[in-house]
Computed example of a mutant assay.
Amino acid sequence: MIDDMREVEVVVAHSERVTLRVGGVFLKVDTDQARIDREVEVMARAPIATPEVLWRKPPVLAIAAVPGAALGRLEEPSRASSAAWVAAGAAVRTLHDAPPPPWPSSQCQQKPARSSRSIEFPPLLDAECEWLVANDVVSADVVRRNRQVAEAALWPWTPVFIHGDLQIVHVFVDGDEVSGVVDWSEGGHGDAMYDLATLTRAHEEHLDDVVEGYGGDIEIDVIRAYWSLRSLMEVRWLAEHGYGAPATFPQVAVLNALSGRA
């Protein structure tokens, strides 16, 4: 039961699900009961701090807020300390070293590649690239260079336990320690570099901190490849769903910055 709560904050709202915050409780509304069931199981399997499940009444899942504050936001500099970013890298390594769930993360499309796996470019990538150029969001040269950068993501990898949507808003820190990781709806097995890329995109200044905490087995070119790939795929959706002018998106800034590395 939720007492003395005066405001309801809409955290996420789209056609698949809605997440609301009421005081210290998050309410996730999802008509896909299997997805909710899997998210609860993923959190139970994860060897790092996750939110407490308070109750479940389909289609609603209630979870407790975690202490501290988010590591940062994609579109602005992080206020967290370098030590907090190092701690985040260490937490991700703990997750990746754990036995992975039997199902794949929906965010890592997979195909057999001998004993390992690799991703494939999303089928809509060409259309997204064409849209970026046709709408003068970025130049054809920037798109071409980022396609080149993104090719490094087409590498064979061994599946590990990944969060699948490890944006910095999903990693909470209290001082210099990770206090909890939220939103496990994409959790499963997948490419470790995908999590690291999601965590550090648009915050390259903290990549060294994350690498220090993670401790080895890092493919920097693959991380940057995922930065390019995800940014190419996201700009159109954001523009068409009222998130503002594309020129202001951090994804566009990432594409422009990475084009100089190709």
Rank of each mutant, 00 (worst) to 15 (best):
L196H: 06
F172P: 03
A140V: 09
D208H: 02
F161M: 11
G180H: 04
G190V: 04
V143A: 10
H163S: 10
Q148H: 12
V160A: 08
A202T: 07
A197S: 15
D209T: 07
E128C: 12
L154V: 06
V133W: 04
E205Q: 12
L199T: 04
R201W: 04
W155G: 02
R201G: 07
E177Q: 14
D136V: 03
L196I: 08
T198C: 14
M193I: 13
D165V: 00
F172N: 02
V169T: 15
V171D: 14
S139C: 00
L166F: 10
D183Q: 05
V178S: 06
A140R: 08
V138P: 09
T158G: 07
D195G: 07
D208Q: 14
G190A: 11
D191Y: 01
G188R: 10
A197T: 05
H206P: 05
Q148P: 07
L207V: 11
G180L: 07
E205C: 06
D165L: 00
D183W: 11
A192F: 07
G188W: 10
W184L: 00
T158C: 13
D183E: 07
Y194E: 10
A192S: 15
R144M: 05
G180T: 08
T200G: 00
W184A: 00
S139G: 14
W131C: 03
D136N: 15
V160W: 05
D209V: 08
L132M: 08
A197H: 07
A150N: 05
V138F: 06
G175H: 13
W131D: 02
L132Q: 09
V182S: 01
P159F: 07
